[in-house]
């Protein structure tokens, strides 16, 4: 019988859980977070267990990560916790063994993580206390433009004359976008400027940590095709892709660490 390991990642906007058997991902689930991180952890864990037909007791060892990681462990839903920085590095490098740099952009933070050939953390940088360069920035801009978050990326590709945003601050950007809308600017041109601004902000972090090839993206913002494209242009290389949802990489990393701690292969 396979030995199973769990990873739970409770972030600021979404929560994920991954079940790993000794060789591969047995199941994964993702939900929007609830007000209490413990409720998020329980719900997402139950979702993945239901999907895989397992009981909580079937998991040999579970590791939590993300903002709720300590509480989740204290409640006994996990046996250890790790930072989301290690988790994303570990998960991405397992998916793509050639990866040495991971750009993880979540709901409320952005990180650039450098890992070695084992997926162990070599260096990292995280954004300061500011929404600029995080998923929240894109959410605010999408709402201001009156489009869905998932539309913001594809909309950029329709831009004919991308505009310039003169600031990186989310609040001032929102004012500037409103100003462009009042002047009758095309939404696609504004969306292109929003995505470019986002990528430029993240590039400042990439420069601080010093990117090494191969480079990939994780987190919710990795789903924004325009931000990816802009980052590829700024980096001068293609970001490598993988086969799973970019939002489960943190939970996957936690499950991989659970496997290491729990004596799996």
């Amino acid at each position: 019988m396979a030995v199973l390991f769990g990873g739970i990642d409770v972030g600021s906007l979404t929560a994920q859980a991954v079940v790993l058997d000794n060789g591969d991902i047995a199941g994964s689930a993702s939900i929007g977070v609830k007000p209490n991180p413990l409720d998020s952890a329980r719900t997402v864990l139950m979702a993945v267990l239901e999907q895989t037909g397992l009981e909580p007791g079937d998991l040999h060892f579970t590791v939590s990560t993300g903002y709720g990681r300590e509480q989740v462990q204290k409640e006994g839903l996990s046996q250890a916790n790790i930072s989301e920085i290690t988790a994303h590095g570990k998960g991405a490098q397992w998916l793509l063994p050639s990866v040495r740099t991971v750009i993880d952009i979540g709901g409320q933070d952005a990180k650039v993580i450098r890992v070695n050939e084992k997926g162990d953390l070599e260096d990292f940088v995280m954004n300061d206390k500011c929404a600029a360069g995080t998923g929240r920035f894109l959410e605010v801009m999408a709402r201001t433009l009156g489009v869905g978050l998932e539309e913001l990326g594809p909309l950029s590709f329709q831009a004919r004359n991308p505009l310039e945003l003169s600031t990186r601050c989310s609040i001032y950007c929102e004012t500037e976008v409103l100003h462009y809308l009042q002047r009758g600017a095309d939404k696609a041109d504004i969306a292109a400027s929003v995505n470019r601004t986002m990528a430029e902000r993240v590039m400042a972090l990439v420069r601080r940590v010093g990117a090494q090839k191969e480079i990939t993206m994780t987190g919710g913002v990795a789903k924004n095709v325009a931000v990816r494209k802009e980052l590829e242009r700024l980096l001068g290389i293609r970001l490598v892709e993988y086969r799973v949802d970019s939002q489960i990489v943190g939970a996957l990393g936690a499950a991989l660490v659970a496997r290491e701690m729990g004596g799996g292969r």
Binding site: E84, I85, T86, L121, D123
Partner: peptide, 9 residues
């Protein structure tokens, strides 16, 4: 989070 990641590093 940063200090924990630093210890892990």
């Amino acid at each position: 989070t940063r200090v924990q990641a630093f210890l892990e590093r």
